[in-house]
Each structure stands twice: as structure tokens, then as C-alpha cells.
Design a protein around this nucleic acid. Structure first.
Lengths: 199, 199, 199, 199
DNA sequence: TATGAATGAGGATTCATTCAT
DNA sequence: AATGAATGAATCCTCATTCAT
């Protein structure tokens, strides 16, 4: 087997993987211990309680695991981009492209972020965007706007597009087109005002 | 199919109101019959089943009620705007402003739309935006983009901002500012390309 | 599909036994999970759902258990009889005698067969009788009659006598007399016509 | 309308008729007040409780009504027969034939008799048969047997055949054949022993 | 570690009945 | 006579969690 993360012992990792699969398939509300146990081939839910302090703990472990997987895909792509605007574009495009690689993880993360009471993950990404926008504004590559509000709107819009795509994964080319569409939208939305203001 | 009395028979309306309040407070998953009954001052959940065929029926009634309330607030404001761009701005601003008037209804509707498996409400709004964008593109006031994807991203971003605002309702002035921020964002995101394209 | 332990895992068997007792005492309609749980000394009905997939599953297990018990009693007695007529008599008499040994099982089986929408058990016995009559007719030991209708009437009559006896179990001698009475009735009812027919 | 029995006021009769229809269609267990009310076109179950002291009272009224209907059909046919044997035959045949005329009433009565805790109706018929057999034995037209046991077996067998026929009403000719089959069976089963004993 | 059993609360829904109007 | 609203118990079932083995 050997297909385990280095952070967790075998069973834990197996349970986390099953949880992600179940959330992706049945949604947050449908992810009961018994369903997860069945998926994991466990004969009882007791094993889950043994390995995790509770549902919150299990879900937190899932978020950690998913972030590792998605980070490995997205981070190099974002790092390869130069400048705040290109990085924004890279974030959006790689996030959409990620659907083609790890649809279950993407679906599960969105469900978790949507339902799990204010995890550090969701706040982290929000803060990341907000900070990114502020830095870009200081550098003059983004126009003046309320960074927090815009970060919230854009990350949520991104999630919605990604979730829809993950529900019925399109071909890579179509996925790339979706990413470009959305990145265009976000770049234009945040671009500096050229000369005279619009309305 | 029998005709119902004027105020929706009193109790029915009261149950709907309580359901909206409970969803706003405890979320979709937390809106159990017993919690709703307690909020409504009913001695048992049987009364809810007496008035509504089931949870779907109750939630549908809530959506209808909320749409009536929100429509009464937003529609005249949108109708007063001239042209697709101004109407987009009016939609966004009046939706955010609505939070100050009916925060519970706004929160509940978002929860319902998010969870009640593909209601006509959510599809309706999405189709409305999509159609609005296509018409504006034909008129040359919106640039060329994938109307469906953009509609999805922008409505979801709007929901997120509205939901966040509804969670801790700010003062009207701050609410108005939020609305303008978001409307600006959306107008710029969809504005026609002046001469040379960006990026 | 997992293999079950020897005594049907202890609790399972206990629940089945309690269910049989409750059905015998309170009838099919009165056999609620809560009553069964109380009889079995369980603190909640959840335990029953834990061991059985549902009411159908539980009842099916009861039928299996009862058939095992009754089969062990009746089958050797029937097998010892020679010829279709003697076997018919042996079936009836051993079935009535069974009441003295397992009154609860007999009562419960009749209730189950009467209510559990066309179980294989009831159809099986009916088909068995029908086939038995046809074979006997071919051998000339039964007169010509509609095998299906007669099978239906006689098995139902047998059930009624057995159920009545099980409601207030008489002494073995009286039980034996009842069995002989009924066997006589059935043997005469199905006997070949000697010379001139009656009317 | 004018289609009311002389025993009950309009609404009562209507409720009784609906109850019979519902029991025939949904069985004893399925005959809830709400279903009966719906069938009767009543907007609430309160009306049933108003007219009847309880479920037992309602069901008793149904039995009375059904016995009137069935008696009107069967009694003249039985009265036309001469002698205990012919009367037994007439009872069986007219009871089976009744299925063609009043299937709902037949179905409902069997359900009621089977479930309603020992009504006078079922005991009455049993006593009637028993007494009939005793009288016939005294007259020498029936052989010596346990009148009570035989009455129980034969009435139950008759019920089963009738219930099966009522579940999918056959053509009158087939119904008549069934009746003759069963009557033959019962007449032979109870016939005096000619010379030497059988078996 | 892992299993299977047990718990107790909570889920929606249906039921017969009562009562004010 | 009739309605509609209300009650409270009972239905089966699922849940997360605990515990002895």
C-alpha cells in the first residue's frame, strides 16, 4: 500500500480519505460516522471515535489533508506567476484546473468550508486574499476598493464556479476555458481605473 | 387545493415566520420541527405536520414568503434604474440594503437556496442574471464573457457578502457603502473593453 | 453478508425471542419496537435497529427461527407417515400437538403469516399442500377436487384451530383429541368417492 | 340522494360506508380516521369522533351495516334450502356468491372479524354453525364430530376462500364453481359414515 | 488497536381524540 | 351539525458517542 501521508498513521489516513470521499458524494449533512465507516470498510463507527476526538476533529483533519493535496497542485503554479495580478489569475485558474485532478477533495473542501463553523482554513484564505489585494493596491496594480469585501465576494464566486464544475467534471479544455473566464472577470474587476472613472 | 384564508390562516403564517427565524438563527441543518415548534410556542411538532405536508412544503412556503418580502423592497428600486448596467447596480445595492430591513429573511433565503435541492428560486435568479447579461451584451453595454459562469460567480459573491452582513447587521450607512463597493466591483468586471485590452 | 456467530450473536437471538413472545401476546399490530425492547430488557429501540435492518428484517428472522423450531417437531412425525393420506393426518395432528410444545411460536407464526405481506412461508405451505393433493389425486387416494381451493380452505381452518388452541393451551390429551378430530375432518373431506356419489 | 339506511342519520351512514370502503381497500391497519375522513369528503376527523364514541363504536356500526347487507343476500338463499346439509351447502355457496355482489363489504367484514377483539358477530356465526351441526347430528344427517372444532375450522376456511376471491373478484361462473367446490368439501367432511369406517 | 454492543437523544410523521367556535 | 385547530403520545429510524472485551 504505502499510500499514506506522513502526518498520520495508517488507519487515521484511511478514515480521512473515506470521509473526504463520503462528503464529496453525500454532502456535509450526509457524512455520518456510519456511512464513513462503511466506506472505510470498518465494521463499526467506534473506530472513528477512537481515532478522532469528535466530528470537528475529523473534519479538521480532512481540511488539513485536502489543503496539502490542493497546495501541492496550486502553490507552484501561483509561485510561478510574477506580480499580484498574474498571481490572482494563477490562483483562480489553478483552482479551477484542480477540479480535474482532485474533484473529490475540491467538493469536500467546499462543503466543509461552507458548513464547518468558521474554520481557520476559510478565514486563512480570506485573509490571504485580503492581504494580497492590499499589497497590490499599495503597488498600484489594483484599484482602490474595500479589500475585505472584495476578497469575500471573489473567493465565494470562485467557490461556486468550482463547486459547479466539480459536480460534473468537464473536459480539461473546458475547465481551462472556465478558469480563464473567471480570471478575466476578477482581473478586470480589480484593475486600476485608466483615466476617467466609469459608472 | 382548498382556498386559504387571507393571512394564510394565522397559524400557518406564524409557523412560516418562526421557521424563517429559526433558519436564520440555527441554519438549515438546525431547523428541526421541534425547534421551530418551540419558537412558535406550539406544544408539539404535530401541529406543523398538520399545517404542512412535510418539510419541503414548509420550506417552499418560506421561500414564497421571503420572496414576497424581498421583492417588495428590491423590485421598485431595480425598476427605477435605467439600462442594464444601472439595473445591475440597483440589484446589488438594493440586495445589500435589504439586509438592514429584513436580515432574518435574507439569511434564511440564502440557507434555503443553498440547501433545498435546486429550488426554482435559485435557478430563477441565476437564469435572470444570465439573461440580463446576454441582453446587455447584445446592447453593447457589457463586454463579451460567458454569461452563465459570470452569473454564477457574481450571484454567489453577492450572497456571501449579504450573508456576512446579515450575520452582524451594520449601520445603514456602512451597508450602503458595502453595496456601492460590490456594485462597483461588478460593474467594472462586466464593463466593455475601452480600446486596448488588459493583461 | 458477514458471517454470524453460532447462537446468532446472542442479542440477536434474544431480540428474536422477545419479538416472538410479544407478537404472541399482543398481536402483529401490537408488536412495536418499544414493546419488544422493553420485553428484551433493552434500554432503547435503537438496539433493535442496530441488529436488524428494519421491521421486515426482524420479522423475517422470526419466521426463520419459528420454522426451525416447528420443523424440528413436525417433520420427523410427518416423515414417519406412509402415503399421502397418512401424511395429511400426520401434518394436521403434529401441527396441533405443536401448540403444547411451542404455543408462542405457533401464535406468532400465524400472526406473521397473516400480516407480513405474502411471505414465502405462507405461499410455501400453500403450494406444498396443493402439490400434495395433486400427487395424491394422481395416486387415486384423494378424490377429484380443486387442489388450490381445498389447500387454501384446509390450511386456513387448521390455522384457526391452532390459533384458538394456542390462546389457551389445553392439556396434551385434549390437544391430541383436537388433532384427531381435525385430521378426521380433512381426511374425510378429501377421501375418494366409494361407489355412488353423495350430494 | 336518499341512499341511507333507516337505522342511522345521514352523516353516520356516510361515515360507515366510507369506513367499509377504506377497510376493503387499505385493510384494518390502514383504516385511520384521517383516511376515512378523506374518503368521506370530510374536512376533519373531528366529525367522526363526534358521531362515534370511538373506533370500536365505528367498527361495530360497520359490522351491523355489513351484516344487514349480507343477510339480505344470504338469508333467503339459506332459508330456501331444505334440511341441514342443503342449508350448509347454501350457506357456503351464497357466501362465496356474495363476493360478486358486495366485494367491499365482504372484504371489510373479514378484516373486522379478524382484527376487532372478539366481536359478537364472529362468535355469533361460530355459535350458529356449532348449533347447526349439533342439530344435524341429532337428526343423523351429520356424523359424530366435535361441533365446535369443526365449526371453527370450516368457517375459517370459508373466510379464507372468500377473502382470496374478494381480493380479485372472478367472474360469476367461476365464483359459482368455487362455491360448489367448497360446499362439496364441507358436505363430504361432515357426512355420516356409510358402513365401515375409513382410514 | 480494534470490535461489537449499548446508550439515549433527537429526527419526521401519523394517530385518535378534544375543544372552542 | 360541523369545522379547523390543537394535543400528546406513539411510530420507526439514525445519530454520535461510550465502553467492555
Amino acid at each position: 500500500m504505502r499510500a499514506r501521508t506522513f502526518t498520520e498513521s495508517g488507519r487515521r489516513a484511511q478514515i480521512v480519505a473515506s470521509t473526504i470521499a463520503v462528503i464529496a458524494e453525500a454532502g456535509y449533512a450526509g457524512a455520518s460516522f456510519s456511512r464513513i465507516a462503511k466506506h472505510a470498510g470498518l465494521s463499526s463507527t467506534g473506530m472513528i471515535s477512537y481515532h478522532f476526538a469528535g466530528k470537528d476533529d475529523l473534519f479538521a483533519a480532512c481540511i488539513t489533508e485536502i489543503e496539502q493535496v490542493t497546495g501541492a497542485f496550486m502553490e507552484p503554479r501561483i509561485a510561478a506567476a510574477v506580480g499580484p495580478v498574474a498571481q490572482l489569475r494563477a490562483y483562480v485558474e489553478s483552482n479551477v484546473a484542480l477540479v480535474g485532478q482532485h474533484p473529490d477533495e475540491v467538493r469536500a473542501l467546499i462543503e466543509l468550508v461552507r458548513n464547518a463553523a468558521q474554520s481557520p482554513a476559510v478565514n486563512g484564505r480570506l485573509a490571504l486574499f485580503e492581504e494580497h489585494f492590499r499589497a497590490g493596491q499599495a503597488a498600484g496594480v489594483f484599484r482602490a476598493f474595500d479589500a475585505r469585501t472584495v476578497a469575500l465576494a471573489l473567493t465565494s464566486g470562485l467557490d461556486a464556479v468550482v463547486a459547479t464544475a466539480a459536480a460534473a467534471v468537464p473536459e480539461p479544455a473546458e475547465l481551462a476555458r472556465l478558469g480563464r473566464e473567471l480570471a478575466d472577470l476578477y482581473v478586470r474587476a480589480t484593475a486600476p481605473v485608466p483615466e476617467g472613472g466609469t459608472t
